[in-house]
């Protein structure tokens, strides 16, 4: 019975992530609108968008191959698989034995890779540009994700995300150590780059010549677009949960009692809202970088991650 319960919690966590993801993105948009003196769409707008897209018919270019139809499912499935591995409500997770942080990084990269293929497939000029840019950004940001989490893994002695969280909770002083803070900075910059947020890509429009994410999905419509958008929103939520739970793990349940799980849910919501506010303020403050400056920003986050590893490895 307890085994079943553990898996039920994992399933509940993933479902919760899927349900919350559109709301989180809607909340970020609403905060941004308020900060920019606009009234803004309500936070539940993305749910309505999803409903609309799922009801619409799919239009596929005649030159597109089977790949084009398969990609939305691959992207969505790989992101959902990551949701099983990221500690959100309770540790240790039952799927900890299946995959650690390396699996998380490569599952995310798998989605990115297939999305880039889908951008190239219909042969439109925009899609190709988007794919080439996305791969440039991904090649520079994926190592940083791994390095930043490795810095935490070094002090926890395990690459298992659940273990890292449990270790940080057992030893709270490590959470203010410089290695952790540097890694947090690195992961935050990468979160912006991976999710196509403002200094790297503009999530609000597809009318810019320098767009990245929007350029790749320009050819999609209907339920395919809905799946891809949902996966992208889920990715934002997953990165936020990583930022929130790896670096400020308090609130994550270590025992599967209803009270602890409720408390874990509440703290998770609080962390997500806090990060949404931070992101909205940040995106309102900065201007989009020129594309050729993006590698410099990613170099900054890479150096931060290297320093985080150096500090936590050499100064033990």
């Amino acid at each position: 019975m307890p085994v079943l319960k553990v898996y039920l919690v994992a399933l509940a966590q993933t479902t919760l992530a899927l349900i919350l993801a559109p709301g989180l993105v809607g909340l970020i948009r609403w905060f941004k609108a308020r900060l920019q003196n606009r009234s803004g769409a309500p936070a539940w707008q993305p749910y309505l968008e999803l409903r609309k897209l799922f009801a619409k018919e799919v239009v596929v270019s005649r030159s597109a191959s089977w790949l084009f139809r398969a990609v939305p499912f691959v992207v969505f499935a790989s992101t959902v698989a990551v949701a099983f591995l990221v500690p959100m409500l309770a540790v240790p997770l039952p799927f900890d034995s299946v995959g650690d942080l390396l699996v998380v990084v490569y599952l995310l990269l798998l989605g990115t890779f297939f999305l880039a293929l889908a951008g190239l497939d219909p042969g439109s000029a925009f899609g190709g540009m988007g794919s080439s840019r996305e791969m440039t950004v991904a090649a520079l940001s994926e190592p940083t994700v791994a390095l930043a989490i490795f810095a935490l893994a070094l002090s926890a002695g395990s690459t298992n995300l659940g273990q890292i969280v449990a270790r940080t909770m057992a030893d709270p002083a490590t959470a203010v150590s410089p290695g952790y803070l540097l890694a947090f900075g690195a992961l935050f910059v990468v979160t912006l780059a991976e999710n196509g947020r403002l200094p790297v890509d503009n999530p609000a429009t597809h009318l810019e010549l320098t767009m990245i994410h929007e350029a790749m999905i320009l050819e999609y419509s209907g339920r395919y677009l809905a799946l891809i958008e949902w996966a992208a929103w889920l990715k934002v939520l997953l990165f936020f949960s990583l930022l929130g739970n790896l670096f400020v793990p308090w609130g994550v349940a270590t025992a599967l009692t209803p009270g602890a799980l409720c408390w874990a849910g509440t703290t998770l919501l609080a962390k997500l809202v806090a990060l949404a506010v931070v992101l909205a303020v940040f995106e309102t403050r900065v201007a989009k970088l020129r594309l050729f400056r993006v590698p410099e920003l990613l170099a900054v986050s890479f150096v931060l991650a290297v320093l985080a590893i150096t500090v936590s490895f050499l100064a033990r």
Partner: peptide, 25 residues
């Protein structure tokens, strides 16, 4: 002692980060 050490290292990393900003901007 431990907390003091951590805070001192934290301060030093901030000082270093500002130095790295010179290279970035």
């Amino acid at each position: 002692d431990f907390a003091f050490g951590q805070l001192a290292v934290l301060g030093s990393s901030l000082v270093l980060l500002c130095g790295l900003t010179l290279l970035w901007r």
